[in-house]
């Protein structure tokens, strides 16, 4: 029952139609329950015309399950999955703008950048923009370092996450398009996947 008390990061993947106003409909499901969205990304998915939201929240499994069902209830939402960080491959992208002259003076910076897997996107006389992708701790760590060298601007993207054991959405969508969908479109309702029984 720990999962009902312990808060952790959950990655919620929402497959939706591409519809104006849906972002708001999804966002208010969180805000109504006073849940803080740590990160939200919308993008195309592996299926043409189907959108994919990646939402990260720090909550208990119980809360996440309820939110997932409320999300899935929305007319234009096709499917919702929620996964812990262990269940997904995820990345965030960060950009850092630093003064070029200072960077040029400090050789150690270059080494640092290599260490953090960064690359220069733009190098101008007045500033240079570096980019890294990785987990939150990694992109954060570089901020701290660059702060000493006159970091001008920093921005980090929302998280994008791929579900490790997902087969993608193509087959599911074909099911949805049928008038009478098959059993597998509702497998998320089985919450204890191992035993295929309800444990809530």
């Amino acid at each position: 029952m720990d999962s009902n008390i312990e808060k952790k990061e959950y990655n919620i993947t929402v497959y939706t139609e591409n519809q104006i106003g849906l972002l708001n409909r999804i966002a208010i499901i969180f805000s109504r329950r006073k849940l803080n969205v740590e990160s939200l990304n919308t993008s195309p998915s592996e299926v043409e015309s189907i959108h994919r939201f990646n939402i990260v929240i720090n909550e208990t499994e119980d809360v996440v399950k309820k939110v997932a069902r409320q999300l899935e209830k929305q007319v234009e939402v096709l499917k919702v999955y929620f996964n812990t960080n262990e269940d997904v491959i995820w990345q965030e992208l960060a950009l850092y703008k630093v003064p070029t002259d200072i960077i040029a003076e400090h050789v150690s910076v270059e080494r640092l950048l290599r260490e953090y897997g960064a690359r220069a996107v733009v190098i101008r006389k007045d500033y240079t923009v570096f980019e890294t992708t990785g987990h939150r701790e990694e992109t954060d760590a570089l901020v701290e370092v660059l702060q000493q060298y006159g970091l001008i601007e920093f921005v980090r993207s929302a998280r994008v996450a791929i579900i490790k054991d997902s087969d993608g959405f193509h087959a599911k969508l074909r099911e949805f398009e049928r008038l009478e969908p098959g059993e597998d479109v509702i497998e998320n309702e089985y919450l204890n996947k191992g035993q295929k029984v309800f444990t809530m």
Binding site: F176, E177, I186, E189
Partner: peptide, 14 residues
């Protein structure tokens, strides 16, 4: 309208 692919009003009875 009889079907919307993103909307399943009647869950499958098991």
């Amino acid at each position: 309208c009889e079907h919307i692919r993103s909307y399943r009003p009647y869950p499958i009875v098991r």
